[in-house]
Computed example of a mutant assay.
Amino acid sequence: MADWNAGQYLKFEDERTRPAIDLIGRIPLTEIRNAVDIGCGPGNSTGLIVERHPNAHVLGLDNSPSMLAKARERLPRAAFEEVDIAAWQPDERYDLIFANAVLQWLPDHPHLLARLVSFLKTGGCLAVQMPNNLQEPSHRLMEKVSQEGPWAERLASASQAREEIGSFEDYYSWLQRAGCSVDIWQTTYVHPLADADAIVDWLRSTGLRPYLDPLSPEEQSEYLRRYRVEIEKAYPAQQDGKVLLRFPRLFFVARRQ
């Protein structure tokens, strides 16, 4: 995929940061010497770690130059590196590995989680949040529009860009096998947004990217037009004119024994 658009992503910064706030609040560590924020994006989640653990050495990792530029601007004293998380092999072990809204882009979660846990110190935590919204209208309609347009063949694999999220039992079992105690839960956030255009605008910087990136600018405009029509039908306006975007997210905090 093309590089992320950090400015587009940050249009909904408050809503995107809420899950990271909830996740960091469940981490049972009182003292952290070193932490890494994988898939740190523009640094909004990294900033939470820095604020909560001001004496820790905090490293942010991402594969997007645009996101890293924003992160460095936001947190000039923190360390950031451009890294492919799938191939990341650190030289040290961490008290905390924080992964907010990133692991859904990586495959083979049983192997991935075991690998990440191996980078923790004994007693360290892997804290993860992943969108679990592939069955929501917002995402089912992406696939519907992709199959009905002249771009159907080119977008045939777009839905495979994200890993299918497993069940509570899956993640509990995988993490226990990796030698962890596990705290796991799911929260459905309900975001009141201005209108259907706001839902489309939100998703342009995340879920829609695998569908838009292979298209020409003209095709992108037509895809978004058709998608917006479907979104407007699926998310009716409330009494105040706003629409409610349901957004389920899966969380877990795994502590290495």
Rank of each mutant, 00 (worst) to 15 (best):
D62M: 13
L96M: 02
D37M: 08
V182R: 07
A6R: 00
Y172P: 00
A69G: 04
P107L: 12
R26C: 04
A35K: 07
W151E: 07
R177W: 05
A87I: 01
Y94L: 02
P54G: 03
P137S: 03
Y9T: 02
P217Q: 02
V145Y: 05
D3K: 07
A99Y: 04
D201Q: 13
T46V: 12
E232N: 11
F98S: 06
E15N: 09
L203E: 15
A196H: 07
A161P: 04
R33V: 14
T122Y: 11
G43Y: 01
V36H: 01
W174S: 09
R209H: 11
P19K: 02
K233G: 00
D213W: 11
D183I: 06
S138D: 06
W151Q: 08
D91M: 09
V83Y: 12
S173Q: 15
E81C: 09
E92S: 09
E232L: 02
S205Q: 10
K121I: 15
V229D: 15
I24R: 01
P65G: 06
R74T: 08
E169L: 04
A178Y: 05
L193R: 12
N100M: 14
F98N: 04
L68C: 00
E222L: 13
I32G: 01
A127Y: 08
A158D: 05
A78M: 09
N132H: 13
Q104A: 03
W105R: 03
F251T: 08
W105Q: 09
P110D: 03
N63W: 07
I38P: 00
S146H: 01
H109M: 04
N34W: 11
N44Q: 09
S138I: 03
L224I: 14
P90Y: 09
L61N: 08
G241V: 07
Q257T: 13
P214F: 11
L245W: 07
D195M: 11
S159G: 15
V190W: 14
Q89M: 14
P192N: 10
K121V: 15
Y171C: 05
R16C: 05
G123M: 06
I97Q: 02
I21D: 00
Q135G: 05
D95C: 03
A99K: 06
S138H: 00
L155K: 04
A69F: 03
P65R: 03
L59W: 08
F247D: 02
A56C: 06
V50T: 10
D240K: 04
N133V: 09
L193A: 06
M1D: 09
I231F: 10
P217L: 08
Q186H: 02
I184H: 06
A56D: 00
D108I: 14
L212S: 02
R162H: 13
G166Q: 14
E136G: 00
G39A: 08
W105N: 07
K121F: 05
E82T: 15
P150A: 12
L23D: 03
Q160G: 13
V200C: 13
R225D: 09
P110R: 03
N132F: 11
